[in-house]
Amino acid sequence: MSHEDMDELSPAARALIDDVRDLDGPGPADRARVKRALVAAVASGATVAASSAASSAAAAAGTGALATGGVSLGVKLGVAALLAAAVGGTALVVTQPAEEPAPRAEHRPARARFAEPAPVPAPEAPALEPAPAPAEALEDTPIAGAPVEASVVEAPAAPDAPSPALEPTPRVRRVPATPEEVAAVDSTLSEELVLLREAQRAMQADQPAVALSHLDAHARRFPSGILEEEREAARVLALCRAERVDEARALARRFLAERPRSPHRARVHAACP
């Protein structure tokens, strides 16, 4: 700031700000969690029609809108799909994405950038199964193409008075992120997924020691990978299954302490009673 133009803050105010302003950022787990959600949302085309008149206009214009009305739900569905892909239905699925109820019966296919709708699996289809999917590269391809009007950004500051057009009516149509989609999205993530899926298969085959070796491989290769949290949760489950109860409990305690907002907390907590 050009401080010569303005009064400076008092030393007391300055000290307060300087003392704490590195405290309200995200931690590593926060960054990874939101990134995972974002990657999954983009990969799955977590498509949400929005809650504002502007988004309706955008949808009507055929551009679709990923606006704020239901994004969080869309994002969560996307994450659930990703987690299911990562650690599998038997091991760690906290939310079966396909069973996630949509908030409204009406589904509106409002797609942000995905011209080709991906096949929507039957509700019971596990997200683990590979499915043909349009590959949309998030990281590898420069984002090109016509800009999509964003209702959030374009919307004028709306008056406080509620209006029907502004009612929050999130409508969600989810296309799950299959491992293949994710692979197209991010090769790193796909390598991570391979290891975690191996671990998950081993768990399904009741070979927890093998699962642990895959998890160790993941930990060596991607110590703070995007799926670190999934790996650690899966490790608790595998240790329990391997009857290494003390280790499992210790790890579970650490997991619960360090990841207070993990979606896997309940699973981890219940793993080794």
Binding site: P26, D30, R33, V34, A37, L38, A41, V42, L66, T68, V71, S72, V75, A112, R113, L138, I143, A144, G145, A146, P147, V148, A150, V152, V153, R261
Partner: peptide, 16 residues
Amino acid sequence: DDVVQEVFLVVHRRLD
């Protein structure tokens, strides 16, 4: 979490 995600989803649409 939700707000940050929403911001970057808008960014995703509007990079151009």
